[in-house]
Design a protein around this nucleic acid. Sequence first.
DNA 1: TCCTATTCTGTTATCGATAACATGTTATTA
DNA 2: TAATAACATGTTATCGATAACAGAATAGGA
Lengths: 348, 348
Amino acid sequence: MILSSRRKRVTIKDVAQAAGVSTQTVSRVMNKFSYVSEKTRQRVETVVEQLGYNPSALARSLSQQRSYMLGVVTFGLKYIGPSRTIYGIADKADELGYMLLMKEIDNFNINSIDEVIDSLLARQVDGILWVAPEIGNNHAWVEEQRAKIIVPVLFLAMRPRSGISSVSTDNHHGGVMAVQHLLDCGRKKIGHISGPLNWWEADERKRGWRETLEKAGIGPSEQHCVEGNWSSASGEQAFIQLLETFPGMDAVFVANDQMSLGVLREAIRRGIRVPEQLAVIGFDNIPESAYFYPSLTTIYQDLQLLGEQAVQSIVEMIQARQENRSIAPQSRFLQPTLVVRESSGCVL
Amino acid sequence: MILSSRRKRVTIKDVAQAAGVSTQTVSRVMNKFSYVSEKTRQRVETVVEQLGYNPSALARSLSQQRSYMLGVVTFGLKYIGPSRTIYGIADKADELGYMLLMKEIDNFNINSIDEVIDSLLARQVDGILWVAPEIGNNHAWVEEQRAKIIVPVLFLAMRPRSGISSVSTDNHHGGVMAVQHLLDCGRKKIGHISGPLNWWEADERKRGWRETLEKAGIGPSEQHCVEGNWSSASGEQAFIQLLETFPGMDAVFVANDQMSLGVLREAIRRGIRVPEQLAVIGFDNIPESAYFYPSLTTIYQDLQLLGEQAVQSIVEMIQARQENRSIAPQSRFLQPTLVVRESSGCVL
DNA sequence: TCCTATTCTGTTATCGATAACATGTTATTA
DNA sequence: TAATAACATGTTATCGATAACAGAATAGGA
């Protein structure tokens, strides 16, 4: 026997006919809250059960001009960060009765962005979540194109712009916390291994590092920061370089946990004892970081929560629009938290 | 100004009217390959451009009974494994012109599974990819329910069943390769830290371990295997336990890289030198594993490729059905590969 | 020149639901 | 008891496209 024989879909008409009522009555039964006599209701429900009727959300979307689908545009799904966010999004969307229509993009040229948005709009999504990092001016299109986007859009991890809604982790404050922790532990010569500095998030973390040191009266030098690309390999390389340009370094703030792993590995290899000789603090708090050797002190950003909040917000925007209310666009920040473990060498 | 003013959608009628032709003609222009005079075509195209017409894929799906959407059911999206698979799926789907309608599930009771499938079918997906691990008998519903699923379905990482299509990594062979490598390196007393044994994949890896040792004339004992839950913490615990029940152990095959990390950490803490005293081999090849200390020898399963193959297969199934051809269900396996690094202590 | 094939375009029905309106039947109230 | 409200159901139009059919206009061939 072949799987999935081409059986025809059971439609509202079939049900109506079988129950001897009009399609409208069936529709009323399916959607509750309308006058239907108890007798009719039961008869229809029995037929629905028997035929296994499953209403076409597609047809419903068309006639109601509302799909209960959210368009989700992602970039870098293969990395753990985005996928944790997606998890939060999926979870909350489910809770609120929305499905996700996903589209991964692999570049940011204006044409492909246009295409992605068109394809989402063609499927009548009720709103769009933009889950792609801000790199260089890859969000420039927002200003020009947003007029044509006829549904609410919410950006994740984007530099705040007036008139546009976004939700982001407060990376700057995360950087501040990291460096402040190192200072509190008595370290003075604090280097930084940043992410790619054309990423807004990397830049913010670095700014947190610089400003905190300045505030502490320790003017950091550009020599004390080396740029990585988020990978463990780049972390290792950057660390090697930093050891040369900043020989007295007694602590390093690394912009993510993967790069921290590269640092720890190279430290062991060189016999640099962590945390005694060198304190290390990461960013993200990936699950593995608690089992690095030594375990990694890090800044925890709750990406799952970020996703949840994003869905919450956009659903509110959708509802507002549905009721013809207007809602003021806003940029929100989620605060990261400090997770102290062995690598920073002090429990405060 | 408020974002997303409630502008009305431009429809085929608007275009038809503006161009002074019938909607059918506009449809013909949009879909190419039909008789339209050059003059008309240009006129219509100009109007399309001017109005910014974007055909409703929703309406098209309804009338063509085909949506170019794939339903994707996931479980454990927050972990890196599934999300790598999703990446492969997203990439290939894009290439073949499909969008993804995603639904994450958090349990396997028959009701919620029913609901998920209904909601996908209600949106007219052309096929369904089941990206959820086989745990216990959580796939039992497949046998009973598949009759009601009127579109092709393909399972990832499922124990082969006759009459049902699936694509999986050959976990058994992965286990064989891992243990064989350790044997080749001269190890004789090989322990195993497994995943949760009600997971099909964990069970298969363990079977590879057991059978390979038996074949080598080394009857392994149940005492030489401890069950973990995939987490680094559980790996650490399992390792501690294994050290007691299997004192002479000179190598251990750990069922994933995260648990391996726990093992490596505890080994360092106890002064057990890896690989000299104890060889360690993991499974998965997560990006970080190359930067563990020591770097981890592991079995690489290409989850991204798995996702790509899955999409390729289901699209073939969909096309076959479209043309009323029948296609024999089949279970396919992808072969994992061995990645030799420091932790196994020998480059062959 | 007439006939047929090809090209071009429009009309009507359909996909599967809901919205809006209409109508008939009970119950309630003045 | 008649008027009105509440309840129950059906009819028609609509969402935005394509399929199927049909009628013209043009071109080519006998």
